[in-house]
Structure formats: structure tokens, C-alpha cells
Design a protein around this nucleic acid. Structure first.
Lengths: 260, 260
DNA sequence: CATTTTTTCTCACTGAATGAGAATTCATAT
DNA sequence: ATATGAATTCTCATTCAGTGAGAAAAAATG
């Protein structure tokens, strides 16, 4: 029999709601958001208090405890992301026969958290795990940029210096903006030999909406593989993998806890 | 009747343990750390999984979910700290008749998260809420520095430029190091008119050990109040207040969950 | 002081939680 | 493949933790 509800679920639901309410929240508000009876909200809040997760900062105002926030602070998020997503990336690489990546944005650069080559002896390795690449010329980078809030993107576009690495590299901010807009619309981006004369790459975002973590995955290969002739052919595999990863890294959702 | 244990407490205890184990943790390890039966650990882990808090990254290796970590990321920790600690700081100011502060370290500078003046029309205000002061010459700063890991402190001492603000300002790195060591030993620090000719300040750390959050509180006043003649007189009040705040901001602790 | 909101308490009821151990699946090496 | 040990799920009878409506108290608020 499947457990649909219970003390733990309810408590976690409250914890989620308290964290989601950036500014502190009242029990009555919590009750209406979670669908729990007021009486239960108070009881559970008291438990979350003694456990050190939620505390009352003022009458009718509950906040997450600093010590709890610190607990989640010193965790290597990239390592977790890597461990959770690697199996899916591995399968993607094997299925497509290409090199698969998962990347995130770290101060304007793409960091490749995962890199799995289909063949072990992959000569042309422009990326390595933990390595970085400029965002403006990589497929993953364009997707990540396209997921950025408007302000952050504009800042990137205006502050950046776009050095050409190949003849194809987009070095014009306006053109880059267009490219990123396109990526957002169509849901994928290409690196059309913009990093190297011999590197073609297709990338899609993880999570249809800007996810809990802005990350993207890609497959890439050398010119000889001729992926560039039909980039769409890998999109299905990419998107399936992305969806799988998205569900693996998705956190708590604010939901109406069903009544018993 | 007081609730000593239960599904929620146990689940939170597991969540704490998983977060504390930076690198991922096995159910058996969790069982021994929390004192819960293996069977229960799995059951609770499954609930934490569906709730989006903890997930299996590999057999025998459970990690906090990125989406959960993100949830706690965009929270204004200073605002929470302010709201939780203000009442205590307020009482401190009123009891001592001095201006009371709570400060934290933010890239080498002290940020005053809370400032409460005993009298409303406090003319000499060298600090304001949200304002910053150099760490090396303020009492709060010295205490905060004394709570820093050895490496971070050394970095501060070697990288810093210690500009004199008064004749008393310590501008020599070695002397400052000594001053900070003393602060660590005796558990409090002074600003002996080092910021201004008319500002004396006594500070103690919040939390006996380096707490969940490195913060310190202080009382200060102008020269005319003559606190500088007996700084120890306010230590008891300071320490009581610090202890109160420490307990308010203390987060979850890894503990053996008592058997039923 | 009156009024409203927040918070705690009461209590009878019930099904959620429990944990030992069996059974099964899975990982890994042989 | 097959074996081996670990990880994980399942089963099940028992019982106590969880439940929520509403009363009541406490604490803000004006």
C-alpha cells in the first residue's frame, strides 16, 4: 500500500512552504497553502522548531532557522549533480555513440560537470570533467544563457568580450542575443564549429522551465561524424535524457497536502 | 504530554544526517548514526525521496536533492538573523543603556545586521543597520576574525591594508594577530577608540563555539559614558544575550533518535 | 480597556507508524 | 554465466502517535 500522507510528509510540506515564503509566513497562511488544519499546523511547527528547522521570529511569522540553512550551505552541489545525473548521461553517450556532457554556468563560463565519451580513446577532447569553456560559443553555454533572467543575460551580453576561436564564432553581441533568443524559442542550441574547427555540438536544457538548477546537456562529436548535417536527429534522445535528469534533481514542490 | 519522538522527528533526523554527510551516506550508516532500525530508515528515506529532499545517487549512497538545496539558497539569511535576534539585542540595549549591535563578517568587513540605540536621539552614530565597518578596528570585527578558521584569518591578516582611523587604531598585522588571539582566549574584544575618538565598544561572540553562523554582538557608547573604565561590567549582560541568540539561531543537531 | 489574532489545550478515535525478519533484487567479482 | 554478499523491499500483527474540531487561554493591537 502506498503512503499518500503522514506526519513526515506534512511536516516537510510545511518546511517547504516556510522556505518558499522568503519573508516569513503565518500559520494561517501555511494552513491555507498546505491544506492542513490550523491545529495541525501549530503542532507540526512546534516539532520543526524543536528539531531546529523552523522558528518563530515574530507573532504570526515563522522563518527557517539560520543553523538549518547553514547545514545545506557547505555541500558540494556539483558533486551531487554529477552523481545523480551521470547514469543518464552515460546512457545518452552510449545510445548516440557521441560524447555527452552536462554543464552549468559559473560566473559567465560553462563548467562541464559531467563528460562521458562514447569511445574510451576519444582523441579530440576539448572538454574534460570539471573543465570550463566560454559560454558564448558553446552549445551548452547558449542554452544556459537562454535560461538566465533577462537582467543577468543583458549584463553578460554587455560586459562580455567575445573572442573568436574559429571563423564561425559569434563575436557580435547583437547576433549572440539573437542566437540565444532562438535557443530559448526552439528549445535547443548548436555549437556550429564555433569553439573548434572540428567540434560540433547540440544542447538542450534540463527541465522545460528554468529548473531548480540551471543546467544543460549536450552531445558533441568531430566533423567526421556528420551530425551537423542533421542535428535534429539527436534531439529526441537529448530531451528524453534531460527529462530524466530533471526529475532526478527536482526538489520539493509546494502542494496541497491531501486530507486524510 | 511532550512529544519526544515520531515520524517527523525521525525523518528530519535522517535529513540532517544526510546533509551533514557531505559525500553521501548509506542507509546502514544512517541507521547507526540515528539509532533507527534499518527497516525504518528505508521507509523514511523513501518518503524523503518522494518529498524531494533526499535521493539515491548510487546503491548505498543517498544525497540531498539539488532542488531542495536550491530552495534554501535564495533566502535572505541576514533578514532572518535580524528578525530572530532583534528582541534580544533590544533588551540588551535597554538594560545596559548603551547602543547594541549584532554583526557578521562579509568579505572582510563587518556588516551590522542589527543596531539598537538605547536612546532614540543618539547623536554619534558611527553605525547604522546594514552599514559596514572595517573588521580590524571594531570590537565585533575582532571577535568575528577570532572565530575564523586559521587559514582565512591568515589570509585576512596578510592581504589587508590597515588604515589608521584614530591614534589607537592597530595598523600592524602582527599586533592585530596578537589582539585577535587574545580575543579568542578571553572570549571578548574591545574597540578602544580605534574607529573614532569618541567610540568605545565591547563585543562577545554568539555561541561559545564557532556557531552555525559566525556572528558577534556588542555594546558601544561615547567616551563620556566611561564604559572604558570597566569594560568587564557589561560582559555578563553581553554573554547572556549571546547565549540567548545562539539558541535562537541554532539549527538541527545530529542526535541519536531515542527508540520508542 | 475592548477587540482581534495568535496560540495552546482537550479529547476521543483511528489508522499511520512501527520493526523484526523473510524474501527479493541488485551489484560485483569470479 | 554463476556465485556471493550487500542493498532493498515486503509482510504483518500490534499499538501508540497522529489526528482535527472546537474550547479556551494568551498575547497583540488599537
Amino acid at each position: 500500500m502506498i503512503q499518500i500522507d503522514g506526519a513526515l510528509q506534512r511536516g516537510l510540506s510545511l518546511l517547504t512552504a516556510v522556505c518558499a515564503a522568503k519573508t516569513g509566513i503565518s500559520p494561517s497562511e501555511l494552513a491555507s497553502r498546505t491544506g492542513l488544519p490550523t491545529s495541525s499546523v501549530y503542532r507540526l511547527l512546534k516539532q520543526l522548531d524543536t528539531a531546529g528547522f523552523v522558528r518563530k521570529s515574530a507573532p504570526g511569522c515563522y522563518v527557517p532557522v539560520p543553523g538549518f540553512l547553514s547545514l545545506t550551505q557547505d555541500i558540494d552541489r556539483n558533486a551531487i549533480l554529477r552523481d545523480l545525473a551521470r547514469p543518464a548521461i552515460f546512457r545518452l553517450a552510449r545510445k548516440t555513440g557521441l560524447t555527452a556532457h552536462l554543464g552549468i554556468l559559473e560566473n559567465g563560463m560553462v563548467t562541464y560537470v559531467i563528460r562521458v565519451a562514447a569511445r574510451a580513446n576519444d582523441s579530440a577532447s576539448f572538454t574534460r570533467e570539471g573543465g570550463q569553456l566560454e559560454a558564448y560559443c558553446s552549445a551548452v553555454g547558449k542554452v544556459l544563457l537562454s535560461n538566465l533572467p533577462e537582467d543577468d543575460l543583458n549584463e553578460y551580453l554587455s560586459d562580455g568580450e567575445f573572442v573568436p576561436l574559429t571563423d564561425n564564432t559569434i563575436t557580435n553581441a547583437g547576433q549572440l542575443q539573437q542566437e540565444i533568443a532562438t535557443a530559448r524559442t526552439q528549445g535547443f542550441a548548436l555549437d556550429n564549429f564555433e569553439v573548434s574547427e572540428d567540434l560540433f555540438c547540440v544542447s538542450v536544457p534540463v527541465g522545460p522551465q528554468p529548473a531548480d538548477q540551471n543546467c544543460a546537456i549536450s552531445v558533441s562529436s568531430s566533423r567526421s561524424a556528420r551530425i551537423y548535417e542533421a542535428p535534429e536527429s539527436v534531439l529526441d534522445d537529448l530531451r528524453a535524457t534531460a527529462a530524466e535528469i530533471a526529475s532526478r534533481i527536482a526538489g520539493p514542490v509546494e502542494v496541497q497536502t491531501g486530507n486524510l
